[in-house]
């Protein structure tokens, strides 16, 4: 069931120049959500942000009825959202889309880049609650672009790469030593981030018999299957990333990799 609800901002925590984390209070009992699902957030008071903005559910606390959104400021809409203050209202249509599915084995690697780390915290927590200890591999341009590593470290092992080598291993996520071993320590990859990164991971997984679930960031107008603007080519033809995705098994996508 989808809802349209006014949440109240409790905190707006600035993480870096680019990133903030909003904690939102739900007025009653939160509906259940699946990691990888997202919300369509109405941006009030922006001159040009007309459509809602899709944002992943970053974290959920059912006991306090709060959720978190991790926001990277990239344009007018996200800049306006990043300025929200405690006490402000935020209107969400949620939970939307098909999230990640649980694996058949416990050996999981969660790989994120940029704002793509957002859904992986909720996913990691979900694994921990199901008795699975996840490994995280997080990539960034520089040490300063890595966000909330401590939160991920509370859930599992965290491996890091940066393009300039200022933190963790130097290079892209695919260059990290844990990806290099002949027999990887994981059977399932869960990833969200730039397409180029996810394609490399899909290729890696495909050649090793590992499954790879990717989360796409197509531009959306509605977020719930009404407009057909957000499609991606799949083996079954065009599918909506907002309803059939945003998470897909990489083998289902018609990706040139």
């Amino acid at each position: 069931m989808k809802h349209i609800t006014d949440f109240t901002i409790i905190t707006n925590q600035r993480e870096t120049d680019e990133f903030v984390v909003l904690t939102l209070q739900h007025p009653g009992e939160l509906p259940s959500m699946v990691p990888g699902q997202f919300a369509e957030v109405r941006v009030d008071g922006a001159e040009n942000a007309f459509l809602r903005r899709p944002l992943s559910i970053h974290d959920v606390d059912y006991s306090n009825n709060t959720i978190k959104l991790l926001i990277q400021e990239v344009g007018e809409g996200t800049r306006v959202l990043a300025k929200l203050k405690s006490g402000d209202q935020l209107n969400l249509v949620y939970p939307l889309g098909t999230g990640y599915s649980l694996p058949k084995s416990n050996r999981v690697l969660l790989v994120g880049g940029g704002c793509g780390v957002a859904p992986l915290l909720f996913l990691g927590r979900h694994f921990v609650e199901n008795g699975i200890r996840p490994k995280f591999l997080i990539g960034g341009r520089t040490a300063a672009t890595l966000i909330r590593l401590d939160a991920y470290e509370q859930l599992g092992d965290v491996y890091v790469t940066t393009e300039d080598g200022s933190a963790g291993h130097k290079g892209f996520v695919i260059h990290h030593p844990i990806m290099k071993t002949e027999t990887p320590e994981f059977d399932h990859i869960y990833t969200c981030g730039p397409d180029a990164m996810m394609k490399v991971l899909a290729k890696y997984a495909g050649s090793r018999g590992i499954t790879c679930q990717v989360s796409l960031e197509n531009h959306m107008a509605c977020g719930f299957g009404a407009c057909l603007c957000c499609v991606t080519p799949t083996v079954d033809g065009h599918k909506c990333t907002c309803v059939d995705g945003p998470v897909f098994d990489s083998k289902y996508l018609k990706w040139e990799i």
């Binding site: 942000a49 603007c229 957000c230 499609v231």
Partner: peptide, 23 residues
């Protein structure tokens, strides 16, 4: 009909462009 290729949507001031192509 499969409709047109992605991208099919562009946000514009107080509106949007679509090119769904009758999927």
């Amino acid at each position: 009909r499969e409709g047109n290729a992605y991208p099919r949507m562009a946000e514009t001031p107080k509106g949007m462009l679509n090119a769904v192509g009758l999927q």
